[in-house]
């Protein structure tokens, strides 16, 4: 399990993230929510050691991140970056790279790696894409393949930086249902989401980040009721009970929390 204790990160002098305590619990979807520039992406990257931290400690299964090699970290936590270059390779090859943290010299993928990659792609429903070049896939298909790569990494924790960005509604919901299945299999799923209503609907826990600090943390309903979400985002929120469970909606623009 990944644990953050009093973590500050960003640039020296003006930290983007300040004194955050968080635990990424297996079997749950944790959504990091907050307005633009609040530091949630920085928090996510720092949690994996992709960005240096200024203060605090980050423990991965009880061991400080600084004591682990990038390879050791990669065997325990996967990361789906938001911005990435789409490489000139096939989808199957990309998923196979999820096995990179397990490669030892001379760094050739083995039969077992290929099998794990095949299963991962199948699990996400993308088995028919294996031979297709990444460049020819749609955004939704690409996301599916990247998810399969993270899955092939076979880690307890999966971090995703805005996995639904640039996707249409159907593909957004597909990504969320895959995330739910991952959590049901006992993985800790942590993601940054911009769509607050989607977050309220799909998350097990929400961490509300504002101005680099953890403003609130808890179950979606509890967060909604405490009202800090509305203040942090500067909009009013409403909810209705529907045949599809509780649905949240945006109301008016309100004064922002400063």
């Amino acid at each position: 399990m990944l644990e953050l204790k009093r973590v500050s990160a960003g640039y020296r002098g003006s930290p983007v993230v300040r004194g955050v305590d968080l635990r990424f619990v297996p079997g749950r979807i944790l959504v990091l929510a907050g307005p633009n520039g609040c530091g949630k992406s920085t928090l996510l990257r720092t949690a994996l050691g992709l960005q240096p931290r200024l203060e605090g400690s980050i423990l991965l299964d009880g061991v400080d991140l600084n004591a682990l090699s990038p390879r050791q970290i990669a065997q325990k936590a996967a990361f789906m970056a938001q911005s990435r270059s789409v490489p000139d390779i096939t989808a199957g090859r990309l998923v196979l790279h999820g096995r990179f943290p397990y490669l030892s010299y001379p760094r050739h993928y083995q039969k077992q790696d290929r099998e794990i990659a095949r299963q991962a792609l199948q699990w996400t429903g993308g088995e028919s894409l294996a031979e297709r070049p990444m460049k020819e896939l749609s955004g939704g298909q690409q996301q599916r393949v990247y998810l399969a790569m993270a899955l092939a990494q076979n880690t307890e924790t999966i971090l995703m930086d805005e996995p639904t960005a640039f996707l249409d509604v159907r593909h957004q919901l597909e990504v969320m249902s895959l995330a739910r299945r991952l959590a049901d299999e006992g993985k800790a799923v942590v993601m940054v989401l911009h769509d607050l209503c989607l977050a309220l609907r799909c998350a097990d826990r929400i961490a509300l980040v504002h101005d680099g600090r953890l403003l609130d943390y808890g179950k979606p309903e509890a967060l909604y009721e405490r009202g800090l979400l509305e203040k942090a985002f500067g909009v009013s929120l409403g909810r209705v009970r529907t045949a599809h469970g509780i649905q949240y909606y945006y109301g008016d623009i309100k004064e922002e929390l400063s």
Partner: peptide
């Protein structure tokens, strides 16, 4: 192999342990 992983973008490459 490393070159291939690097082409995925530096964040992804780093998260794969490179």
């Amino acid at each position: 192999q490393q070159l291939d992983v690097l082409a995925l973008g530096s964040e992804t490459a780093q998260s794969l342990g490179l």
